Amino acid sequence: MLPHCQHYVTDNYRYEVWDGDCGGTVDTLLFLRESLPDGFKVCHPKGVTSAQAVRVVVNYLQSHPQDLHQPFRILAMTALSQAWPCK
């Protein structure tokens, strides 16, 4: 999913199907942010955009290449919760 998430935020929003899967997954996780399991709840700053959240996920994926075989949804939840943990 890394190349699709990168394309989502860098190609002037001309999406391919998998790019939309990346953006849709991240949007869903932001929507469910406080309903996620303990350890994965997300308390992002007010006004965070989908593109900003996808950039957080891209940075996480690039920093953890050894984990890219894991399910994308788990990686995205981890990235967002580590970037914006609930206190």
Rank of each mutant, 00 (worst) to 15 (best):
M1D: 04
P3T: 08
C5N: 04
C5Q: 04
Q6P: 01
Q6G: 02
Q6K: 15
H7Q: 09
Y8M: 12
T10S: 13
T10I: 03
D11I: 04
N12G: 15
N12A: 11
N12W: 05
R14F: 06
E16R: 08
E16T: 12
V17T: 07
V17Q: 09
V17C: 05
D19S: 11
D19V: 03
D19Q: 08
D19I: 04
G20W: 06
C22H: 07
C22A: 06
C22E: 07
G23W: 04
G23L: 06
G23A: 15
G23T: 04
G24N: 14
G24Y: 13
G24P: 03
T25H: 01
T25G: 06
T25V: 06
T25M: 08
V26F: 07
D27N: 09
D27H: 09
T28I: 04
T28R: 09
L30N: 06
F31T: 07
R33S: 15
R33H: 15
R33V: 03
E34W: 07
E34Q: 11
P37L: 10
P37W: 05
P37C: 08
D38S: 07
F40G: 01
F40R: 13
F40A: 11
V42K: 04
C43E: 15
H44V: 02
H44E: 13
K46S: 15
K46F: 11
K46C: 12
T49D: 10
T49Q: 13
S50Q: 12
A51H: 13
Q52Y: 05
A53P: 10
V54Q: 08
R55H: 13
R55I: 11
V56A: 11
V56K: 04
V56R: 05
V56D: 10
V58P: 01
V58E: 01
N59W: 06
Y60M: 02
Y60S: 05
Y60E: 00
L61V: 02
H64I: 00
H64R: 07
P65C: 03
Q66G: 08
Q66L: 09
D67I: 00
D67A: 14
D67Y: 09
D67C: 03
D67F: 09
L68E: 03
L68W: 11
L68K: 03
L68S: 02
H69T: 15
P71E: 12
P71I: 05
P71K: 12
R73A: 05
R73T: 08
R73F: 06
I74H: 10
I74G: 06
A76C: 14
A76V: 00
A76T: 01
M77R: 12
M77K: 11
T78I: 11
A79Y: 00
L80S: 10
L80M: 05
S81Q: 04
S81K: 05
Q82P: 01
Q82R: 12
A83Y: 01
A83W: 01
A83E: 14
W84I: 02
C86K: 08
C86H: 08
C86L: 12
C86F: 02
K87P: 13
K87Y: 10
